[in-house]
Amino acid sequence: MNSVNREWAFDFGPGQPMKGYIGVSPQLRYDEEVGYGFEGNGQVNGRSRRQQELSVGETHHAEEHLIHSFCIPIGVNFVVKVPDGTYRVIAQMGDLLADTLTVLKAGESKAVLPPIPTIAGQFRTVMFTVPVRGGKLVLRFSGAAPRINVLNVSSAEETLTIFLAGDSTVTDQPSIGYPNAGWGQMLPQLFKHDVVVDNHAESGRSSRSFIDEGRLESILEKMKAEDFLFIQFGHNDEKSDIPRGTEPFTTYKQYLKLYIDAARDQQARPVLVTPVHRRYFNEDGTLSDTHGDYIIAMKELAMEEDVPLIDLAAESKLLYEAAGIEGSKDYFMWSYPGEYMNHSGGVEDNTHFQERGALRLAELVIEGIIKLDLQPLRMYVR
């Protein structure tokens, strides 16, 4: 492990690792002093497809170990102790003899890649970039038939970053609430490794409380010239409590302008996102607008300040109405008792999304990026 250059190379599975790689056996549990290993309540198995393992020091065809040997991590995390920053992750997975399907997330729940399938004998190399806070890179493995053969991790501080400021409809929801998800949680998988999504959105926050709690300041400490700041607030600005509530055409616009000015002071690029709609229908099957003047006010501000605007309110309205009163439940946290173990009593939530809905909204954000021709983001869409 090279802590000076912030580069790590791991070779997973039984047997001797390839020269220059750190060996990771299925039994290796995370230890603070060692600085890497598996943790969690799932299970890790390992296999080697070589008929005869290399002996210690043997180098002939040593690279075959990268393919022949692998770990099968199910519902566990692989953790690497790293300094906070931005990291490029390159993973290789596959199996000579079996079809595989691996789901890889960062942290508790950040969807950094679409599910990764391979057929027997096929090996895929995938790449993504992820922010690390708290001194640990956490990669969570699951899927119907997961594999991990090789993992390379390196510092990537100059990567173009999209910072997200928003509320519970945007945030990375904790895994304990699965399948609850914010659209910002699903957004990273829709970009190539050239873009990192750093999601600072937090449940219950308004344009006002987000700033008052120092969350915008935390973003500014990391922001570089040419980065992006996507701003979606409204749900909690509508609340009547003093710490969060704002008025559409006065304080709401004033607080939003603070984000715009702060990003521009850093030579970064602000983008306003109208608040995604709640799922409330009128008797005639049309969606009821619960945001009202907040949407109008944000659009006015976008015009006044010449800021790009993604109208997620309008697009989500079309999405829900197309799905209908019953079909739109599939996007939200609606479930029957026993359907999800984390919500054993069932849920009827018309504000928060399950992963399917959050992904669809993230796709609508991507469509907005393409429509506005926000370069170079458009160029880096998967």
Rank of each mutant, 00 (worst) to 15 (best):
D198Q: 07
A262M: 05
Q16G: 01
I296V: 14
Y380G: 03
K371T: 10
Y320H: 03
Y252H: 06
V80A: 03
G143A: 05
I325M: 13
P131V: 05
D84N: 08
T102H: 03
Y331S: 04
Q267I: 04
P14H: 11
K253D: 09
I74N: 10
T161W: 11
T250V: 14
K136L: 11
K239V: 04
R264Q: 10
S335E: 06
Q185C: 10
P243I: 06
G75I: 02
T100I: 09
V112K: 01
S209C: 09
P270D: 06
V170C: 13
R147T: 10
M186D: 08
N350W: 11
E321C: 08
V153W: 10
R6F: 11
D373F: 11
A313D: 04
L359I: 01
R215L: 11
R278A: 09
Q122D: 10
T125C: 11
L312E: 02
F128Q: 06
V76Q: 05
K329I: 02
V112G: 00
M1S: 09
I242S: 11
P179M: 12
G15W: 00
Y30V: 09
G345Y: 02
E157R: 14
V24N: 06
A297G: 09
R205F: 15
T290E: 12
Q267L: 12
W8S: 02
L359W: 05
D311N: 08
A9Q: 13
V153E: 06
L374C: 10
G107W: 00
D167G: 07
L96Y: 02
P83F: 07
N199H: 13
N5L: 13
P243F: 09
D306W: 07
D11C: 05
A98D: 03
C71I: 03
T286A: 06
L312M: 08
G42T: 02
V347N: 02
D237Y: 02
A323I: 11
M303L: 15
I67P: 00
W183G: 04
R378S: 15
D241I: 13
N152F: 14
A262H: 01
S328E: 12
T59A: 13
K224H: 09
E226V: 01
F210Q: 03
E64K: 15
V150M: 11
G42C: 08
I295W: 09
I74A: 09
F191Y: 14
M379E: 14
F78E: 00
T171G: 01
P26I: 07
R124V: 13
R356M: 12
F123I: 08
A358D: 06
P174R: 03
N5H: 14
G23Q: 00
L359A: 08
N5D: 14
S55A: 10
Q92R: 14
V82A: 00
R244Y: 13
Y87P: 01
D167V: 10
V197G: 06
V150T: 15
I295C: 04
K257W: 15
G346D: 11
H200L: 07
